[in-house]
């Protein structure tokens, strides 16, 4: 076969494989949404789960997922911004900085089950938090920090050095310059990274099964006192999330309609991820427009 023919054949194969790639995504999405969406109803989204009988919902798990996400982001956002600033603005090129970068690299590549087990050992057992929202949020923070930090660092690095010089030349400290000039300009990138991070956290399960736990006790949605045991806000109660729930009902086999509930829950999870994905693009575009537009 001559080279011309090879060229045609190879191109054909590449088209085929790219097509397969699209088919895989289409299949995944259609499978989940086709099987899941019929089960998603207001009732499904708001009622508690049931064992040994059909008709349970995912109300508590859904709430838990959002609450955990909120707490995890609350802890990890400030830390990652601080560390991102350090790496992009203060870190000198020396062994200490390369040590810091290496540890962040290692942390980001750790399997999430290892993070979960570490959280189990340190937060649940040693710190006495037990299976609780708080241990879960801390484990998710560990899981989330390296990527957020790197995103903050990269977003800050993308802002021109001349902006920093402008601030410094006016007698501002480096810190003021970063906080008041560089961060606002880097905000679209930072926010996009945060939302994508939130999407990752929302779907994470392995880091949570031994920290936030695998049970979802009934909640009293009329009592929002965080110290009350059945309060939705109580940070010390165990809290199975949506992702953990999908895993749990599939590996336990005590829920008769596990397949339907999993499909519904997966659909909700996928839709949430889609919303995070599109939200990231949308918000970053908006923030950007606001900043460069008129006051």
């Amino acid at each position: 076969m001559n080279s011309k023919k090879w060229n045609t054949v190879a191109t054909g194969i590449l088209y085929f494989i790219a097509g397969v790639m699209i088919l895989i995504l289409a299949f995944l999405l259609i499978f989940i949404l086709w099987n899941g969406l019929p089960h998603v109803s207001w009732h499904f989204l708001t009622t508690p789960a049931r064992s040994f009988q059909t008709g349970g919902g995912i109300g508590i798990q859904l709430f838990n997922s959002f609450y955990l996400l909120f707490l995890a982001m609350l802890i990890s956002i400030p830390i990652s911004i601080g560390a991102g600033i350090y790496l992009s603005e203060y870190a000198k090129q020396n062994w200490l900085t390369s040590l810091i970068r290496t540890s962040i690299d290692i942390l980001s590549s750790l399997p999430s089950i290892v993070v979960g087990l570490f959280g189990f050992l340190v937060f649940s057992i040693q710190a006495g938090l037990g299976f609780s929202i708080l241990s879960g949020a801390l484990a998710l923070t560990v899981f989330n920090l390296p990527l957020l930090t790197r995103n903050v660092e990269e977003s800050l690095n993308s802002i021109s050095e001349s902006q920093r010089e402008a601030g410094l030349a006016l007698g501002l400290s480096k810190w003021e310059t970063v906080l008041r000039i560089i961060i606002p300009e880097a905000l679209p990138g930072i926010v996009t990274g945060m939302i994508l991070g939130a999407g990752r956290v929302f779907g994470e399960a392995a880091a949570l099964i031994y920290t936030a736990g695998q049970s979802a006790p009934a909640l009293d949605f009329t009592n929002w006192n965080p110290f009350y045991i059945a309060s939705p806000l109580n940070p010390l109660r165990p809290a199975e999330t949506l992702a953990v729930h999908i895993w749990k009902i599939n590996s336990e086999g005590i829920m008769p309609d596990a397949a339907q509930v999993s499909a519904g829950a997966s659909a909700v999870l996928i839709i949430a991820v889609l919303i995070f994905n599109f939200g990231a693009r949308f918000i970053s575009a908006r923030v950007y427009g606001k900043m460069t537009g008129t006051k």
Partner: peptide
């Protein structure tokens, strides 16, 4: 920081802040 308040600087490329 105090010193730079009294010795100001303008750079080669205009570098206004992306503010009003």
């Amino acid at each position: 920081y105090e010193m730079r308040k009294h010795i100001g600087m303008v750079f080669q490329r205009p570098n206004p802040f992306s503010k009003s």
